[in-house]
Simulated scan of single mutants.
Amino acid sequence: MQQLFMVVTVVVVGLMVGVELSVAAFVNPGLGRLPDAACVAGRSDSARVLGRVMPFWYILSVVLVGWWAVQSWGRAQALLVTVVAALLVVSVVLSVALLEPINARVARWTAQSVPADWQQQVGKWDGLHYVRVGILVATFILLVVAGTA
Rank of each mutant, 00 (worst) to 15 (best):
88 L>H: 07
49 V>G: 05
124 K>P: 04
22 S>I: 05
84 V>G: 00
2 Q>L: 13
104 A>E: 14
10 V>P: 04
29 P>E: 07
20 E>M: 13
50 L>E: 02
145 V>P: 11
51 G>D: 12
30 G>V: 04
30 G>W: 02
35 P>S: 12
139 T>L: 09
107 A>D: 07
107 A>V: 07
98 L>C: 06
125 W>R: 10
128 L>N: 09
20 E>Q: 09
33 R>H: 08
132 R>G: 01
123 G>W: 04
141 I>H: 09
142 L>Y: 06
59 I>S: 04
73 W>I: 08
69 A>M: 14
49 V>A: 12
136 L>Q: 14
108 R>F: 01
18 G>Q: 04
8 V>P: 00
146 A>L: 13
143 L>E: 11
111 A>L: 12
110 T>C: 02
32 G>M: 08
137 V>H: 12
146 A>Q: 06
137 V>S: 12
59 I>V: 15
32 G>I: 02
50 L>D: 01
14 G>W: 01
29 P>D: 03
79 L>E: 10
62 V>Y: 05
83 V>G: 10
79 L>N: 08
49 V>N: 02
75 R>G: 08
112 Q>C: 01
16 M>I: 05
120 Q>E: 14
21 L>Q: 00
138 A>C: 15
135 I>W: 07
143 L>G: 09
94 L>N: 00
95 S>Q: 14
126 D>A: 14
11 V>H: 08
60 L>P: 02
141 I>N: 06
15 L>M: 11
108 R>E: 03
37 A>K: 01
74 G>W: 05
123 G>Q: 10
87 L>R: 01
123 G>A: 15
26 F>D: 01
123 G>C: 13
89 V>T: 12
36 D>I: 04
93 V>A: 05
42 G>Y: 00
57 W>Y: 07
143 L>W: 14
132 R>H: 06
83 V>R: 09
60 L>M: 10
18 G>E: 11
107 A>G: 03
108 R>D: 03
148 T>M: 14
66 G>N: 06
80 L>K: 05
64 L>M: 13
43 R>C: 10
95 S>M: 13
138 A>Y: 01
89 V>G: 10
4 L>N: 10
94 L>M: 08
34 L>N: 01
2 Q>R: 11
35 P>C: 00
123 G>I: 13
57 W>K: 00
23 V>E: 04
110 T>P: 00
96 V>W: 07
30 G>D: 03
66 G>L: 06
63 V>N: 03
27 V>K: 02
9 T>D: 07
87 L>S: 07
81 V>C: 06
134 G>V: 13
47 A>H: 03
94 L>V: 05
25 A>I: 06
11 V>A: 15
128 L>C: 06
22 S>T: 06
98 L>G: 13
44 S>F: 01
146 A>S: 15
19 V>T: 05
22 S>M: 13
100 E>W: 12
47 A>P: 12
94 L>H: 10
20 E>R: 00
100 E>S: 10
56 F>Y: 14
74 G>P: 00
146 A>K: 02
42 G>W: 02
141 I>V: 15
52 R>L: 15
5 F>E: 11
37 A>P: 08
13 V>A: 14
31 L>S: 00
7 V>P: 10
53 V>Q: 04
132 R>V: 04
